[in-house]
């Protein structure tokens, strides 16, 4: 054996299940951020297509202008800003509930004496609020979609219909996945209680949830508010 040896690192496994990592960060958190970065490109492609096709539909109904079909029937501008504003508020506030849920899980061990502390410290409560707000958002979207279909706009009607339903539908599918994810966490919370050791799992779900929220911030402005 040669005299020259390469020094080995100090033992890498301390405690149970904790493997050595270069940055001391959790792998799952790096992965979710990478995933979110990738999702940026996904939504950029969808939003680009919506914008490219804006104003190119050869027939109505249109998002912001009324349209008269050849038979003389008038289709009013189809986007319902008040309803969507309400659903936007709901989704934004669900993000607020989500950060409270995460904080509650992180601070599970802290003593809670006052009523306010017990409310703020209840991870179940805030997960429920987040889930219900997410579900409410999906409800608003279901209402919007059915109303549009009733008014004569389907995914096949025109370019606006195709690109609108696909863009908002993709976002809605992301919200639905998020709601399932949060309900799964809630189930675990009921089964054995979520504590500080679960904070990372809740954090990852929260990052996904907030990302879905910021995508909606962009969609709401570009699709609904700018004509």
């Amino acid at each position: 054996m040669t005299a020259t040896t390469m020094p080995a690192a100090h033992d890498e496994s301390h405690g149970h299940g904790h493997h050595y990592t270069t940055l001391g960060l959790d792998n799952r958190k790096i992965a979710i951020w990478t995933f979110i970065g990738s999702e940026c490109m996904l939504f950029a492609s969808l939003i680009s297509t919506y914008l490219v096709y804006k104003g190119r539909s050869v027939k109505g109904p249109f998002p912001h202008e009324a349209w008269t079909d050849p038979s003389g029937k008038v289709f009013p501008a189809i986007l319902d800003i008040p309803v969507t504003s309400a659903s936007t508020f709901v989704l934004l506030m669900s993000s607020f509930a989500m950060v409270l849920a995460l904080a509650a899980v992180q601070n599970k061990e802290l003593p809670k004496t006052t009523f306010g502390e017990r409310i703020l410290g209840s991870s179940k409560l805030w997960l429920w609020v987040t889930c219900l707000m997410g579900t409410a958002f999906l409800g608003f979207q279901a209402y919007e979609f059915t109303a549009f279909i009733r008014e004569g706009l389907t995914i096949r009607t025109n370019l606006f219909g195709s690109s609108f339903f696909t863009l908002t539908g993709f976002h809605g599918a992301h919200v639905a996945v998020g709601v399932c994810w949060l309900f799964s966490l809630l189930a675990i919370d009921y089964k054995r209680g979520l504590g500080p050791s679960d904070a990372l799992n809740v954090d990852i779900a929260a990052l996904y949830w907030h990302f879905v929220d910021v995508v909606w911030i962009v969609i709401f402005t570009l699709v609904y508010l700018i004509k």
Binding site: S38, E39, L42, S45, R56, N158, S162
Partner: peptide, 29 residues
């Protein structure tokens, strides 16, 4: 890959559900 995923989703929808993403007659580019 997300970009081709979306391009393929459009094509998939055009082929299976009759959307207009690539239908030139509907004004598609």
């Amino acid at each position: 890959f997300p970009v081709i995923t979306i391009a393929l989703v459009f094509l998939q929808f055009d082929r299976f559900f009759g959307t207009n993403f690539y239908a030139i007659g509907a004004g598609a580019d």
